[in-house]
Computed example of a mutant assay.
Amino acid sequence: MQEVTLYTDGACKGNPGIGGWGAFLQFGIHSKELYGGEASTTNNRMELTAVIQGLAALKRPCIVHIYTDSQYVKNGMQEWIHNWKNRGWKTAAKQPVKNVELWQALDKEVNKHQVQWHWVKGHAGNIGNEKADQLANRGVESLAQQQIQALQTDIIDHENNP
């Protein structure tokens, strides 16, 4: 099985607010950059989405070393998810698990691979984490640009057709 290193990060301008996710994959001498965003989301949703999208980009089962600065994602996958599943996706307090559809999607992707989880401190100089952070912010910026362009188009359309 091929070994892949996956660095992931999420970003949110406001929480909730406009958000972005980034995934930086390295395998041998190759690398791949992925990013995207959502108009109204939370940082936790973007952290989860980054890992889901990074794993979904793999075309075959791999040994994957996932590096995240999100304790929420790491602890969720290593400590909490087994009990959530046993309780029908409920917390210990019998409340629905937040972001359940993302946790389920992540669980599905993780089960295709041999995954090892690693936590890294964010904004502390780890090159892969810094790259994932840049990609997450690029996701925010690209979405913000799309929203500005859509607004400008609406204004022009309104001016041409009052």
Rank of each mutant, 00 (worst) to 15 (best):
M1I: 01
E3N: 13
T5Y: 08
T5P: 10
D9A: 12
G10N: 07
K13R: 15
N15C: 12
P16W: 06
P16Q: 03
P16M: 02
G17P: 01
I18R: 12
I18Q: 04
I18E: 02
G19S: 06
G19A: 07
G20K: 11
G22S: 03
G22K: 04
G22D: 02
A23H: 06
F24D: 00
L25F: 09
Q26M: 10
F27S: 05
F27T: 08
G28M: 01
G28C: 01
I29S: 06
H30C: 01
S31M: 00
K32S: 03
E33V: 01
L34I: 12
L34Y: 04
A39Y: 03
T41M: 06
T41W: 11
N43C: 09
R45N: 02
M46P: 04
L48D: 06
T49M: 11
A50R: 10
A50L: 05
Q53R: 15
Q53E: 14
L55C: 06
L55E: 04
A56V: 00
A57G: 04
A57R: 12
K59W: 08
P61V: 10
I63N: 04
H65F: 09
I66V: 15
I66D: 02
I66N: 03
Y67L: 07
T68V: 11
D69L: 09
Q71F: 15
Y72E: 03
K74F: 03
K74A: 07
G76E: 01
M77L: 02
M77P: 14
Q78W: 04
I81Y: 00
H82M: 06
N83G: 10
N83R: 10
K85W: 07
N86C: 01
N86L: 13
N86Y: 01
N86K: 15
K90Q: 13
K90N: 04
K90F: 06
A92D: 03
A93C: 08
A93E: 15
P96D: 12
V97G: 00
N99H: 14
E101G: 01
L102M: 05
Q104N: 10
Q104F: 13
A105M: 08
A105T: 09
D107P: 11
K108F: 10
K108Y: 10
V110C: 05
N111M: 07
K112A: 05
K112E: 04
H113T: 13
V115L: 10
Q116I: 15
H118C: 05
H118W: 06
H118I: 02
W119P: 10
V120L: 14
G122Y: 15
G122C: 13
H123E: 08
A124I: 14
E130W: 12
E130M: 09
K131R: 15
A132K: 06
D133V: 14
D133M: 10
D133F: 12
R138D: 03
G139R: 09
V140P: 13
E141L: 05
S142N: 11
L143G: 01
L143P: 13
Q145V: 13
Q147V: 02
I148W: 11
Q149R: 15
A150Q: 14
L151E: 00
Q152S: 03
D154I: 01
D154C: 02
I155R: 03
H158T: 15
H158W: 15
N160C: 09
N160A: 13
N160M: 10
N161K: 14
P162Q: 06
P162K: 12
P162L: 14
